[in-house]
Design a protein around this nucleic acid. Structure first.
Length: 241
RNA sequence: CGAGACAAGAUCGGU
């Protein structure tokens, strides 16, 4: 089952869903029983192609499922712009014995943030906490990114402090989001402060982080500084692209 | 007991 699921995953990733479906048939024919992971892979494959309807059909056929299956569906609905339906599905999950988890909320929060519906995103965050679901690095990443996108850097910085206070370790991605946000505001003092802070915590900036800094400096006509950062990046063995 | 699925970042390009 793991072998076939892996193959199905590979096909879905390159958009060959119908061939993935053939493999699903084939595995059944040789007596293998597809499990939750197998079906979630296909559900997500449909959703990636914008075929949330097909994904729903599969799930409604009563195949085995778990929270991840619904998470993939919720993501598919959001991608199709069906945010209200996604919220309805979230409510159904709660009742159907399959509890939403941190991934469920992280997906929704991320999609609402990307729609600039921050209010609803934060409401979802409150809701998840009320239900005793712990916000993960992904949840914070989505929220911080949302704040940065609308230029609310104070709120974004507050979220970083909040995660530190909770003992949740920020990673390279969290810092990159914040750095990119401050770059867009031209606040390079804060940008370098964050870079120092991440180094102090033993988090290595990667190509994406450095590209954010260099791109920001270039847009602000700070070419000398940009060059310095390029050198720093190369000295640290991070490859430019 | 482990192996396969769903969630967050820069730039550029396509529509």
């Amino acid at each position: 089952v793991v072998t076939y699921s892996s193959l199905i995953y590979g096909l879905c990733k390159i958009g060959k869903i119908s061939e993935a479906g053939d493999l699903l048939k084939e595995m059944r024919e040789i007596g293998l029983v597809p499990d939750e992971v197998t079906y979630t892979t296909i559900v997500d494959g449909f959703c990636r192609e914008g075929k949330a309807g097909e994904a729903f059909k599969l799930v409604e056929r009563g195949v085995v499922r778990n929270a991840s299956t619904f998470n993939a569906l919720i993501k598919g609905l959001c991608k199709a712009g069906k945010f209200e339906e996604a919220k309805v599905l979230l409510k159904k999950m709660g009742k159907g014995g399959l509890a939403p988890n941190d991934v469920t909320y992280s997906i929704l929060i991320d999609r609402f943030c990307k729609e600039a519906r921050l209010r609803e995103a934060f409401d979802l965050r409150d809701e998840m906490l009320e239900r005793g679901i712990v916000a993960s690095v992904f949840t914070y990443g989505a929220l911080i990114h949302g704040c940065c996108k609308v230029g609310q850097m104070e709120e974004a910085d507050k979220l970083l402090k909040e995660m530190l206070k909770k003992g949740l370790a920020p990673n390279c991605i969290i810092y990159t989001i914040l750095i990119s946000g401050h770059c867009r505001k031209g606040n390079f003092e804060e940008v370098f402060k964050l870079r120092d802070e991440m180094l102090k915590r033993g988090i290595a900036p990667d190509t994406v982080t450095y590209t954010a800094i260099i791109s920001g400096l270039c847009q602000a006509n700070k070419m000398v500084e940009a060059n310095t950062v390029l050198n720093e990046m190369q000295e640290r063995g991070v490859l430019p692209n």
